[in-house]
Design a protein around this nucleic acid. Structure first.
Lengths: 245, 245
DNA sequence: CGCAGGGCATAACCTATGTAAGCGCGGACT
DNA sequence: AGTCCGCGCTTACATAGGTTATGCCCTGCG
């Protein structure tokens, strides 16, 4: 938002929540990113089948990874917020097996894969931290699998809200149980594997139970304990713990 | 199985299906593993909450990562076969947020995290290959999310069979559309997010459509094209492509 | 040899969630 | 200023998949 805030601010916040970075490492991060660029909401950042020569950092805005099926159904497999590397995995996987789309207007910057390759030779700790980021993505994938497979829709929706609140807190975009979440009910259905009708039912139930309010893009968690309890939310899987890595 | 086959054979097969390894890298792999050890089926290899000081390679047998919910429900988030590093991610994540269990009798060997740390300093390419392994795990997680969220149970079961066949082929444990899969219907339900009753229905349907036979632990794919079509199976997400990484 | 337990199969019934359709509001464009 | 269209919301109805229960066939074991 602020022009004085460096594009890597949220990324650095996300990383330093897990381990200390040296001043040099922070400089390397700042030095490796391209000039920021804007992507309009609804547009793709990377497309299924692409072989990008760089990876993309989300500076601000909301983006998602998704897969589209033949019948038109869409599954969102990850939601990305400021400070997330939306396709860091393409550095090693080479070919995208899914797309990444901007849900809102997004500001992004890129790092060339060649630069990342260099870093794996010169900065082992930074390399491990990048690896860590992709592992936390995997951890969230697993938690979503548990939710879709074994949690009822209501609990899973509650879980999603707990997760997003926690993740936004790490990058300073949520506090006092309130945050902005620019997701339509259709999009939330694509996240949770539900129809939009059922998303609506579930949200009504969370509202009538006075667990949350959600008006427009403003979400307020009225009763964190009850919400987390309903969700069986255990934040350990987000690994927001600072320790040597 | 064969005492002359080194414990890393399947791992090397899995890696070299994605990129060439130097003789020195293969030697490092072989040198880093502990003596093999046996784990009985049904026992845990790593437990939720553990902070293991090493990562575990599955030499042979079948294992799974799983999460258990309060109501007793279990979701299997990954199925592991010979050559898989079942908890390589614990090297960076430090604390396990889920368990890893042996589904059958398993032979395993471990690498100390200290040794892995060294490798990130001395062997960047090998480090990237380890990173790649965890990224492919993430890729499978995403595909399972798509299946659970948006594919009907029949298609998702078909998809699972296609995936396992492909993965077993890479390590030489499947050929001619046939393989051994020691999973009970309850366990398959925990993979697919279904009840065992529905798993049974779905298997009956795959059988009556003459897509597969599944007797005891022996699975035969009778009509790969029809099965893959039903599953909308696109193997790109497994990244079985050899290229410089 | 007989019994217990696990795994598969099947039936009857139930419910969470999906589908189809329509309404109203508010913002964005002409 | 009027018109559209996307989004939220609701209703009526349909169905995929869950639950409970039961039987049968193995295999392992006392």
């Amino acid at each position: 938002m602020n022009a004085n805030v460096p594009p890597t601010a949220a990324l650095v916040a996300k990383l330093t929540a897990r381990d200390d970075l040296s001043a040099e490492e922070i400089a390397v991060l700042q030095g490796m990113m391209s000039e920021p660029r804007i992507v309009q909401g609804g547009h793709d950042i990377v497309r299924d089948g692409d072989r990008p020569g760089h990876s993309t950092l989300l500076i601000d805005g909301f983006a998602c990874r998704y897969t589209t099926l033949k019948d038109g159904g869409r599954q969102i497999t990850a939601l990305h917020v400021a400070g997330d590397f939306v396709d860091l995995h393409s550095f090693m996987l080479k070919e995208m097996d899914h797309g990444v789309g901007a849900l809102t207007l997004c500001r992004i910057a890129t790092v060339d894969h060649g630069r990342l390759l260099e870093i794996t030779h010169t900065h082992p700790h930074l390399t491990r931290m990048f690896w860590l980021l992709t592992l936390i993505d995997g951890s969230m994938h697993r938690e979503w699998l548990v939710g879709m497979g074994r949690r009822p829709a209501l609990g899973n929706a509650a879980h999603f809200i707990c997760e997003i609140y926690t993740r936004l807190s790490v990058v300073g975009m949520a506090a006092d149980n309130a945050f902005v979440l620019p997701l339509t009910q259709v999009e939330l259905g694509d996240v949770l594997g539900l129809s939009s009708v059922h998303v609506n039912r579930v949200l009504q139930e969370l509202r009538s139970g006075e667990l949350i309010t959600w008006t427009g893009q403003n979400v307020v968690i009225l009763d964190w304990d009850a919400l987390a309890d309903l969700a069986e939310f255990d934040p350990r899987y987000l690994h927001v713990v600072k320790e040597p890595r």
